[in-house]
């Protein structure tokens, strides 16, 4: 097995007494696509900033490309592409100039940067926005430009902090497609997301993070297998009745989870459980059988929803 490109052990970041990242350990192999999944405030961005060598760890160990970011910040950053959670494009420059200027920050020759900028504008499907002002681009275009910018130094590792938050479904699919291509070319991807479908689509392996700690680790399929049943039955009885009905459902399915707006019944066969419920004389307002997702894994691990 090739040596990992990122090794974090017992990595901790404290702001005053508050541990934003509380002793997490993980490894990322070259070419792997690794995800951090967790709710708001879990410590995803803080972890990404430490991996990106722009934030100093409080304790623990961290090696990026076999270098310690405390001593080799600039060398590490020269090998990384960073897509921060909030776009920080240079609004005083035109779209393509953003790429050229950014490439020059890495000390790359002008000719190389010019050529890559053209390729990347095409890659991001922004050829007709070359001379556009950043402020005139749509949210999805800005995001694509930010990703293109992150690729200007031909990075070995791409760090993506919520790459598709705030985008419409079509824009997300375009982005996913671009990220797939990068992965095929061997770029290591590290990404954070709230969206379990995104994690399932893009990640070979992921960790579920909550309150600065890792709750579980594995491939999306393995996590679902380990922490959830094959299917989930969702029934709604109206917000005021869910709690009360749930008591009568004891013993149905493998596990029952009550959320404010619905009840989840975990089972290998959702339809069968729905029949049981109707046999009990209960008639849900709506019902739905679906496959288990990472959302269910998260709920199981933390007792809370991923998106609150």
């Amino acid at each position: 097995m090739p040596a990992p490109v990122i090794v974090a052990s017992d990595l901790t970041k404290k702001y005053k007494d508050f541990a934003a990242v509380d002793g997490i350990s993980f490894e990322v192999a070259p070419g792997e696509s690794f995800g951090l999944l967790g709710p708001n405030g879990a410590g995803k961005s803080t972890t990404m900033r430490m991996v990106g060598a722009v934030s100093t760890r409080t304790s623990g160990d961290l090696r990026i490309l076999d270098l310690d970011p405390n001593d080799y910040g600039p060398e590490i950053r020269s090998q990384l592409g960073v897509v921060p959670q909030a776009d920080n494009l240079d609004v005083e420059l035109k779209a393509r100039d953003n790429l050229v200027v950014y490439g020059r920050y890495f000390g790359l020759p002008r000719k190389v940067v010019q050529q890559r900028a053209d390729e990347l504008m095409a890659f991001a499907q922004l050829e007709d926005k070359v001379k556009a002002k950043v402020d005139d681009l749509s949210g999805g275009m800005k995001r694509r430009l930010t990703i293109a910018r992150a690729l200007i130094n031909d990075p070995r590792i791409l760090l993506l902090d919520e790459p598709t938050t705030g985008l419409d479904p079509q824009a997300r699919h375009i982005l996913w497609d671009r990220l797939f291509r990068l992965k095929e070319q061997g770029t290591t991807l590290v990404l954070t997301t709230h969206y379990m479908d995104e994690a399932e689509q893009l990640c070979d392996r992921l960790v579920v993070v909550d309150k600065g700690s890792i709750m579980a680790e594995g491939s999306p399929a393995a996590l679902i297998r380990q922490y959830s049943s094959r299917e989930v039955l969702e029934v709604r009885f109206g917000s005021d009745r869910n709690e009360q009905v749930a008591e009568q459902l004891a013993g149905i399915g493998e596990r029952v989870e009550v959320l404010p707006d619905r009840i989840l019944v975990y089972s290998e066969d959702g339809e069968a459980e729905l029949n049981h419920i109707t046999e009990l004389g209960l008639h849900p307002l709506t019902s739905l059988v679906r496959r288990s997702s990472l959302e269910d894994v998260f709920l199981r691990l933390t007792g809370r929803s991923l998106i609150e």
Partner: peptide
């Protein structure tokens, strides 16, 4: 307001 330096400092610039 523009986070310009934040972007610069995530490159190899110091």
């Amino acid at each position: 307001y523009t986070k310009l330096y934040q972007g610069m400092l995530s490159t190899s610039l110091g």
